[in-house]
Computed example of a mutant assay.
Amino acid sequence: MDPELKFKKINYTDVSLSGGYGYNWVFARNWLAAASLSLALGYKSSSSDTNHSTFTLKDFSFHNFNIDGVGRFGIVWNNMRWYYGANAIIHTYNYHKSKFSTNNIFGSLNIYVGVNFGRMK
Rank of each mutant, 00 (worst) to 15 (best):
N104T: 14
M1T: 06
A86V: 12
F55Y: 15
S48F: 07
G107D: 06
N87I: 01
I111E: 08
S53T: 13
T50Y: 10
S48V: 01
Y83I: 02
L39D: 02
Y23L: 12
V15L: 09
N94F: 01
T50M: 14
L37N: 01
N11P: 07
K44C: 03
N104D: 15
G42K: 03
T54N: 12
R72C: 09
R81W: 05
I67F: 12
Y84Q: 02
V113G: 13
I75M: 15
G22T: 03
L17F: 12
H63C: 02
N64K: 03
G74P: 08
F27P: 07
R119V: 14
K9V: 10
A40F: 00
H91A: 02
W77T: 13
S16E: 04
S48P: 05
N11A: 04
A40Y: 00
L37K: 07
A40Q: 06
A28R: 10
A35W: 09
N24H: 08
S45P: 07
T102L: 15
D49G: 04
A40C: 03
S16K: 07
S101L: 04
G22V: 06
D2Q: 14
Y43K: 08
S16T: 05
S16C: 02
I75R: 11
H52A: 07
T102G: 11
R29H: 12
T50I: 13
T102P: 01
I105D: 00
L41M: 12
D68P: 06
G20V: 10
Y95V: 04
L57E: 13
N94S: 14
I67K: 08
V113M: 13
V15Q: 08
T102M: 14
S45Y: 02
Y12C: 04
Y23E: 10
L32N: 01
L17C: 06
F60G: 11
K97P: 05
N103D: 13
L5A: 11
V26I: 13
N116H: 15
N116Q: 12
G20A: 09
L5G: 06
I105K: 15
D68N: 15
Y12M: 05
K97R: 15
F65T: 03
N64M: 02
N30D: 12
F60Q: 02
L17M: 11
Y83L: 10
M1Q: 11
Y112D: 01
S45M: 10
I105C: 12
T92D: 04
G85K: 00
L39C: 03
A28M: 02
N103W: 14
R119K: 15
I67Q: 10
T92S: 11
L32R: 08
F55P: 14
G118H: 15
G42N: 12
N104P: 03
Y83E: 00
S16A: 12
S46C: 02
Y84F: 14
N30C: 10
Y95D: 09
I111Y: 05
N87E: 01
W82Y: 13
S61H: 03
V26E: 13
L17P: 00
Y43W: 06
A34D: 06
F73D: 07
V26T: 13
G19Q: 04
W25A: 07
A33I: 03
A86I: 09
E4Q: 13
N24L: 12
G107A: 07
L37P: 08
V76Y: 01
Y95I: 05
I75A: 15
T92P: 08
R72S: 11
A28V: 04
A88R: 04
S47F: 10
G22S: 06
D59K: 11
